[in-house]
């Protein structure tokens, strides 16, 4: 597979860093090269948090880039900040539970994921990041969902109830992601 870069962005506490790390762990499981880079800098409590994950079959050169192939945005400030950072032909996943707008860009695919709503209905709002992760993997297929599930078992499996919620929203997210891509193919 060619190199794939995805940016995760939201408020601190939305599980942004964890979502990126789960993706990176799955990449390693599949023998791929991965890099995970957090945003680090002076930030205030409740400010934005973001990370970039690069997955590739080849040696990864630059860990930073002017534009990324995909962005998963969890709140409005991230939506505004990172929409322009997506490469033409790229992918935007929007947490539509908290972002009540859509992009004006016509050169990217946009998928709306009601991540918070899905997580609350499944029993824990903190699973919103997993809903989004499911949608991202469903849409891109850059890693095998089965391996991702195994990683979630491994890393987040300590509390059985939380694991159940996570797996439930993961499955739902995957469906949304796949559907999103099918829509694009039709058009």
């Amino acid at each position: 597979m060619p190199q794939y870069e995805v940016l995760w962005a939201g408020f601190g506490g939305q599980g942004i860093m964890v979502a990126g790390q789960l993706l990176a762990y799955t990449g390693i499981k599949e023998g791929k090269n991965v890099v995970w880079i957090p945003s680090y800098g002076p930030e205030m409590r409740g400010g934005t948090a973001y990370c970039t994950v690069v997955v590739s079959d080849k040696r990864i050169g630059s860990p930073i880039m002017s534009q990324v192939k995909a962005a998963c945005v969890f709140n409005r400030p991230s939506f505004d900040k990172f929409c322009p950072k997506i490469k033409p032909g790229g992918l935007l996943l929007v947490n539509s539970s908290l972002i009540n707008t859509t992009t004006d860009r016509t050169d990217i695919t946009e998928i709306l994921v009601p991540a918070n709503k899905m997580a609350i209905e499944a029993g824990n709002v903190r699973a919103a990041n997993i809903a989004m992760l499911g949608a991202f993997v469903g849409a891109t297929g850059i890693i095998d969902p089965k391996n991702l599930e195994a990683v979630i078992h491994e890393k987040l499996g300590a509390k059985k109830a939380v694991l159940g919620t996570n797996l439930k929203v993961l499955a739902q997210g995957l469906e949304i992601g796949k559907k999103g891509i099918r829509q694009r193919q039709k058009a």
Binding site: Q21, N33, V34, W36, I37, P38, P63, I64
Partner: peptide
């Protein structure tokens, strides 16, 4: 540089 400290890799 700071990147080496903060970045995660296998």
């Amino acid at each position: 540089d700071g990147m080496i400290g903060q970045m995660m890799e296998p």
